[in-house]
């Protein structure tokens, strides 16, 4: 253990890391210590740990979890010192005692998109956005976390794996097994999170990969060559039931509290054809963020009770 930090209690254990709470001794600041298990993997340091370290070292932003330090202890375990973030958006969505108003949703969306914009302008795809990877600081700020699946935008001919993103937040190009995709996969996930915040329940909860296609296209329509030229050549595009795209009225009925521009933004993020999906900049400049009500100040957002 480094002399600069204390390790107080174990709060979680994943496949490649154990997470502890602790303090930075010099400042008294609360921190989380992610101790990467080394030596337990026959191929050396785990890929997820490598990705997390690689990308967090490059990304310093108020809406991205801060990697405070990296060091090795005597046992040669790798320790990632992260800022301490006590809750996440999933906890808040599931806490039925909390009242969430549209201005709160706008605030969380704004912070999420700002963090994501910073990832994308650095050429980094997150590839696993979901409510429990959007952590909340004690001051109420959203911090994008868990870069274990992230990757750099490569050269255009490079093949990418479509087996990314937790199922419910997976865009149609990934469901079809596309090997070339773009930052639009993250935008889709944020669009689904937006819907989930409004509904207070997961928007497209597919039971398995096949069901995810059905659930997604029932809600948003089946992509066709008309609205997405080339889609029929994607690996998993076959034997699809063609559902129509929902009418505006159907969407209004599904999201009764949403304003017209909230629906516009959501639809822009959930365009089936990834080339038509809004990018982070277009989302941030969207009228939704400038119309009333103003986004809630982070410190006044609902907190985990």
């Amino acid at each position: 253990m480094s002399t600069a930090y204390t390790k107080e209690k174990k709060v979680g254990e994943g496949t490649y890391a154990v997470v502890y709470l602790g303090k930075q001794i010099a400042t008294g600041r609360d921190i989380a210590i992610k101790e990467i298990k080394t030596g337990t993997f026959k191929d050396g340091l785990d890929m997820s740990a490598i990705r997390e370290m690689k990308y967090l070292q490059e990304l310093k932003h108020q809406n991205i979890i801060e990697l405070v330090d990296v060091f090795a202890d005597k046992e040669k375990n790798l320790n990632l010192i992260l800022e301490f973030l006590p809750s996440d958006l999933e906890m808040i969505i599931n806490d039925k005692k909390l009242m969430i108003v549209p201005a709160d949703i706008k605030s969380w969306m704004l912070m999420t998109l700002r963090g994501l914009h910073h990832c994308h302008r650095n050429g980094i795809l997150h590839r696993d956005l979901k409510p429990n990877n959007l952590l909340i600081s004690p001051e109420g700020c959203v911090k994008i976390a868990d870069f274990g699946l992230a990757r750099s935008l490569g050269m255009p001919n490079e093949k990418l794996t479509s087996n990314v993103v937790t199922r419910w937040y997976r865009g149609p190009e990934l469901l079809f097994g596309a090997q070339h995709y773009s930052p639009a996969v993250d935008i889709w996930a944020v669009g689904i999170i937006f819907a989930e915040l409004m509904l207070r329940t997961p928007y497209l909860p597919g039971k398995d990969d096949a069901d995810q296609l059905v659930v997604t296209f029932q809600a948003l329509g089946t992509p066709t060559e008309e609205n997405w030229p080339g889609v029929s050549h994607l690996p998993n595009y076959n034997n699809l039931t063609v559902y129509p795209e929902p009418s505006r009225q159907e969407l209004r009925n599904r999201f009764p509290a949403a304003t017209e521009s909230a629906l516009d933004l959501m639809c822009g993020m959930l365009a089936l054809n990834p080339n038509n999906r809004l990018n982070t900049e277009a989302c941030l400049l969207h009228g939704y963020f400038t119309e009333s009500p103003e986004p809630t100040e982070p410190e006044h957002l609902p907190k985990k009770s």
């Binding site: 080394t38 050396g44 340091l45 370290m53 690689k54 070292q57 490059e58 990296v70 090795a72």
Partner: peptide, 16 residues
Amino acid sequence: LKNEYLILETMKFSLQ
């Protein structure tokens, strides 16, 4: 694998 950690450390844990 013996040198993996040493290299990581020398890279100042910055891999990009």
